Computed example of a mutant assay.
Amino acid sequence: MAKLFTPYTIRGVEFKNRIAMAPMCMYSSHNQDGKVQDWHKVHYPTRAVGQVGLIIVEATAVQPAGRISNEDLGIWSDDHVEGLTEIVRLMKQHGAKTGIQLAHAGRKSTVDGTIYAPSAIAFSEDYKIPAEMTVADIEETIEAFKQATIRSKQAGFDVIEIHGAHGYLINEFLSPLCNQRTDEYGGSAENRYRLLGQVIDAIRSVWDGPLFVRISAEDYADGMDTAQYVEMARWMKKQGVDLVDVSTGGVVRATIHPFPGYQVPSADKIRNEANIATGAVGLITSALQAEEILQNGRADMVLLARELLRDPYWPYRAAKELGVKIESAVQYNRGWTYKKL
């Protein structure tokens, strides 16, 4: 059987296949309160009907100032749990496992008021200058990740993913391009990793399920690269991280020339040199492409983003391409048979 459709288990949680939906912001919480709207109740369960094995809900802010935009989902309040519980229930009806990406936008936040970062350096001339976080600010943020994890557990999610990529807060601490601190959170790689390490420990103190970390393995500038993330991935593994979700870019404006599977080599290198499971993402569009990644041990899961926006039922198309028969929603069974009238 094609490896793309073989089950995969992490910490007792079995995913029915290796297809995951990457977290993608929907910018659809229109009341600026971070709550789930009708859009989310349709968007996410549709991919579950489409037989995606793991669906990771978009970057969900652990603090109000940590939103990318006013329309982001939030998990900084108990008021958010009800809506998140509902979308989890709807997704699980169709056999999908559910994840949530816990996030803080850092200096790339566009909300009103003060925004925060490791250093008082704006992302670009189009962004506000952030306030440099004090140690007290950092401690509050770590606690916010912990409380968000407790709420995620209450909502019934199967997987927690820490957003440490794309130039948002944790990524900002990891990269020397925007972390110019001189205290215990800046300077050496160990110091720049400290915030992420403390967030992992805080989450692990209340969460025993699968834990992923999304990283940007390349800054595309004179900053972090995949070789440096191999070392950090080893640290993550020791702390109980189960899978590194490997993306690239976003911490500074840089020229990137994407091509199909352009981020897969980073997932491959981290998987095989740090001996940790990885997820591959980035212009993966065909079943044969996804299957090659898995068959050759370059990653353990394949995450699709825009392709699942274009086609919520991509797994059915992939199964046909690979000659695999998969179960569908009972209501769709007659779509697979043709009886001449």
Results as ranks from 00 to 15, higher is better:
1 M>Q: 14
7 P>W: 08
12 G>V: 05
13 V>I: 14
18 R>E: 10
21 M>P: 00
22 A>D: 06
24 M>C: 15
30 H>T: 15
35 K>R: 14
36 V>I: 14
45 P>C: 02
60 T>Q: 05
60 T>V: 10
63 Q>M: 14
68 I>N: 02
73 L>G: 05
81 V>T: 07
82 E>A: 15
94 H>C: 09
99 G>C: 10
101 Q>L: 00
102 L>A: 04
111 V>Q: 09
111 V>W: 04
112 D>Q: 15
115 I>H: 02
120 A>R: 03
125 E>K: 11
133 M>Y: 09
134 T>H: 09
135 V>G: 08
139 E>N: 14
140 E>M: 15
140 E>S: 14
141 T>Q: 02
143 E>C: 13
145 F>M: 05
146 K>L: 11
149 T>M: 06
165 A>I: 00
165 A>V: 00
170 I>P: 03
171 N>C: 09
176 P>Y: 04
188 S>M: 04
191 N>P: 06
193 Y>V: 01
195 L>M: 07
197 G>H: 00
200 I>A: 03
205 S>P: 10
217 A>Y: 14
221 A>L: 12
230 V>L: 04
234 R>Y: 01
236 M>T: 01
241 V>P: 03
242 D>N: 05
244 V>L: 06
245 D>I: 01
246 V>Y: 02
250 G>Q: 02
254 A>W: 03
256 I>F: 11
259 F>E: 10
261 G>P: 00
263 Q>D: 01
265 P>V: 03
268 D>W: 13
270 I>W: 06
272 N>F: 12
274 A>L: 06
275 N>L: 12
278 T>D: 00
279 G>D: 07
287 A>N: 03
294 L>A: 06
296 N>W: 04
306 R>Y: 09
313 Y>A: 08
317 R>M: 05
319 A>E: 07
320 K>C: 02
321 E>A: 05
322 L>F: 12
325 K>R: 15
331 Q>H: 13
335 G>D: 10
335 G>P: 06
338 Y>N: 13
